[in-house]
């Protein structure tokens, strides 16, 4: 199938992830647009036959990281621009809004992994490949992210983490 067509088909998934990642709809779509534009700019780097979805998420990751970095470097006072804005999903239940707000409070590096697994059903190996980090790092960030999310949602104390049982 033509790559253009496949990329178009992946837009809804890129949008879903971006929305969860940055919170605000307009900014999320900007991130998607930047990602798509960058993907075409760098398309020669994509290996035909490899996973196009994972590659696009990699591009989005890089664009997002660069934006956060640029915002931190150049707008140190403008935290709102650097990180997620206040989420505003109209009509969402209180629990849903809590989830959005809690998600926004996670470090981006944890949020990404929690979302790639939850929304994209990526295997840990795919997440590792997409983000260019070791699989062990994926697991530890996922664990920390989920525990933090849980604590934020329910006021639960940071739990003892299971290292080894038996």
């Amino acid at each position: 199938m033509d790559e253009r067509h496949r990329i178009v088909e992946l837009i809804p998934r890129l949008r879903r992830y971006a929305r969860a990642l940055v919170g605000d709809r307009a900014r999320a779509d900007d991130l998607v647009q930047d990602t798509l534009e960058r993907a075409w700019l760098k398309f020669h780097l994509w290996r035909p036959g490899s996973d196009l979805r994972a590659w696009l998420f990699t591009v989005m990751h890089n664009v997002h990281v660069n934006q956060i970095r640029a915002a931190r470097e150049h707008y140190p006072l403008d935290d709102e621009a650097a990180e997620m804005g206040v989420p505003a999903q109209q009509g969402a239940s209180i629990e849903m809004r809590d989830l959005e707000r809690s998600l926004a409070l996670l470090p981006a590096e944890q949020r990404e992994i929690v979302l790639l697994v939850a929304l994209e059903d990526m295997s840990y190996a795919e997440v590792a490949q997409t983000l260019g980090i070791p699989i062990g790092t994926v697991m530890s960030r996922l664990s920390r992210g989920r525990e933090k999310l849980r604590a934020l949602m329910h006021g639960a104390p940071a739990s003892v983490r299971l290292q080894v049982v038996k």
Partner: peptide, 17 residues
């Protein structure tokens, strides 16, 4: 709770699709 997080995230964002 983790499992619930996964489900709720899907519920919250699948509409975007």
């Amino acid at each position: 709770a983790w499992r619930h997080q996964n489900q709720e995230l899907r519920a919250l964002y699948d509409g975007v699709l």
